[in-house]
Computed example of a mutant assay.
Amino acid sequence: MPSIEVAERPGVGPDGAVRPSEDVVVVLPNAVVLLDGATSLDPALPSGGWYANRLAHELSGRLVGYPDADLADLLAAAIKALARDQGLVPGESPSSTVALLRWNDTRVEALVLADSPIVAFTTTGTHLVTDNRLASMPRGSGYRDRLASGAGYDDDHLMALRAAATSMSRRRNTEGGFWVAEADPDAAHYAERATWPRADVHTVLMATDGVSCGVDTYHVFPDWTAVRDLALTEGPESVLDAVRTAENNDPNGTRWPRPKPHDDQALALVTFI
Rank of each mutant, 00 (worst) to 15 (best):
M1E: 09
P2M: 03
E5K: 04
G11I: 03
G16V: 14
R19Y: 02
E22N: 03
D23Q: 11
V25Y: 07
V26Y: 09
N30L: 04
D36E: 14
G37I: 09
S40E: 14
L41K: 14
P43K: 04
A44M: 15
G48T: 13
G49D: 06
H57T: 05
V64T: 08
L71A: 14
L75I: 10
A76C: 15
A77T: 13
A77S: 09
D85A: 12
Q86T: 01
L88M: 05
G91W: 11
L100K: 09
R107D: 04
E109W: 06
A110R: 06
L111H: 03
I118E: 00
A120W: 00
A120V: 00
T124M: 05
T124K: 01
T126C: 05
H127L: 04
T130R: 14
T130I: 09
T130P: 05
N132D: 12
A135M: 08
S136G: 12
M137Y: 02
G140C: 15
G140L: 12
Y143S: 04
R144C: 00
G150I: 15
A151V: 10
L158K: 00
L158R: 05
A160D: 09
M168F: 14
S169F: 13
R171L: 13
N173R: 10
N173Q: 10
T174W: 02
E175V: 08
V180N: 02
A181M: 00
E182D: 07
E182C: 10
E182H: 06
A183D: 06
P185R: 10
A187E: 09
Y190W: 11
A191C: 06
E192R: 09
T195W: 00
W196V: 01
P197R: 00
D200M: 03
T203W: 00
V204L: 00
M206D: 11
M206V: 11
D216Q: 08
H219P: 03
H219G: 10
D223F: 05
R228F: 11
L230Y: 13
E234R: 04
G235L: 06
P236R: 09
V239P: 01
D241A: 02
A242N: 01
R244F: 01
A246F: 13
N248C: 13
P251A: 13
T254Y: 01
R255H: 03
R255F: 06
R255Y: 06
W256E: 04
R258W: 10
K260L: 06
K260S: 05
P261V: 03
H262N: 08
D263M: 12
Q265L: 12
A268N: 10
A268V: 09
F272W: 13
